[in-house]
Amino acid sequence: MRKLGSVGVVAVAGSLLTLAIGAWTRQPPALAGATITGKVKFTGTKPVMPKIDMSEEPKCKAKYTAAPPTEETVVVNPNGTLANVFVYVKSGLPASYKAPAPSGPVTLDQDGCRYHPHAFGIMVGQNLAIKNSDGILHNIKAKGTKNRPFNISQPTTMTSTRTFSAPEVMVPLECNVHGWMHAWLGVLPHPFYGVSGADGSFSITGLPPGTYTVEAWHEKYGTQTATVTVSGSETKTADFSFAGK
């Protein structure tokens, strides 16, 4: 068990740090082109998210000192916007459009027995670095249907890397040890996607001129689309609004 203990922790912490710095420094510069930005509003009754009982995992439970953790199916921001909405260009790019996958990975962190981020995008062929910061047993299962599904075990602090070969919106990710852990991954052949954040805004940059169908996807409230025409380096706004049921 020594290997899984101190030696492993040190080795993995080191490699994670390297990875993290690598990912951070390798962020591509803002591309020239048009931008689509907007906010995702939320109307109606905000659903009450169930509290998560983490008593089986004291290490995770200890990370929530302010308030007990809740499920993240619907996260309504203080300004009345909806977080974790995946917004992406669904169609409108020329058939000849080709974008190479960035060399840096997208990192999914398992921290406090929750996924960070909860909804996110990746390009076909780009590395997904699946990181276990908790150091307790997680399994990460990707349940794609256009991509091959996989299920790998991470019983210690470690990082596993996988790629996705086909566009798919969305690939559900889950942990079966902790039934409340869910994340959603949008796999696209281009880099034109964003996720609504803590202020409900998103932004898609570097678009070539054209008329695009932009889709906003939410795990509970489904999808909405907007048609946006952009040219040059202009910025256009596309707001979306989801209603609580």
Binding site: K3, I140, K141, N151, I152, S153, P155, M158, S160, N176
Partner: peptide, 15 residues
């Protein structure tokens, strides 16, 4: 099923 693969542990020499 929920049963995962433990091959990554061997590849990364944790086991």
């Amino acid at each position: 099923t929920p049963m995962p693969s433990f091959s990554d542990l061997i590849d990364q020499k944790f086991l």
